[in-house]
């Protein structure tokens, strides 16, 4: 095959095959189907997917759709605090650092991430950023974690709370959980199915 290629080059008539090998802006990945690239991306972790998402438009889309299969990072703890009416603080403790997702939810409509706060003392002040347009995409940031423990604060078990859990928690990183005191665990388990 090399010989054949050389002959074509000498003749100055590169065919499609030779051009693809020689042109620098022709990348290898463009020839691979989406499924194949997703298979590769599903095997790297979320931090690597962050990087991969900045490579190109196609890689950005494929990185997003690979998130659900990528290895979640193991976080120490999730604290869920309910701030009526309709606001939830989800505090994530991960690798010695803390972040808080402020999520508004008052039934019916989709949960909305209002703010993402970085609570680490050694960071610049005012490092909380209101999230703009892509709030639901930001919410998928939660999917990159699995939690060793989960703590509830100020929780009032009502329809709103249960629906919130249904929409935000159970679909992302908690496969099953129960509130230990009282009869709520029964309700929650039923809710999950």
């Amino acid at each position: 095959s090399n010989r054949k290629r050389c002959l074509e080059d000498d003749a100055g008539e590169p065919n499609e095959h030779t051009t693809s090998k020689l042109t620098s802006n022709e990348d290898h990945l463009s020839k691979l189907p989406d499924d194949c690239i997703r298979d590769i991306l599903e095997r790297i972790d979320h931090a690597d997917l962050d990087e991969a998402a900045t490579l190109s438009r196609r890689l950005s889309d494929l990185s997003d759709s690979s998130r659900s299969k990528a290895q979640p990072a193991e976080a120490e703890r999730l604290e869920i605090e309910q701030v009526p009416p309709g606001l939830f603080y989800l505090l994530v403790a991960y690798a010695g650092r803390k972040f808080c997702f402020d999520i508004s939810y008052d039934g019916g409509i989709d949960p909305k991430l209002c703010r993402l706060r970085n609570l680490n003392s050694n960071t610049r002040t005012g490092n909380s950023r209101p999230t703009s347009g892509n709030a639901n995409k930001s919410l998928t940031l939660l999917h990159r974690f699995k939690f060793r423990s989960c703590v509830f604060r100020n929780i009032i078990i009502n329809d709103n709370m249960l629906e919130f859990i249904d929409k935000v928690i159970s679909t992302s990183f908690v496969t099953s959980f129960a509130i230990v005191r009282g009869f709520y665990d029964v309700q929650l388990e039923q809710r999950e199915r």
């Binding site: 620098s24 802006n25 990348d27 290898h28 990945l29 590769i40 095997r43 790297i44 972790d45 690597d48 990087e51 991969a52 900045t54 490579l55 190109s56 438009r57 890689l59 950005s60």
Partner: peptide, 20 residues
Amino acid sequence: KINGKTVEEMREILQLECDF
């Protein structure tokens, strides 16, 4: 190969041009 690499290293390995 791309695991744990920086964006520049990934770009090198994948030979991808940025279209953003």
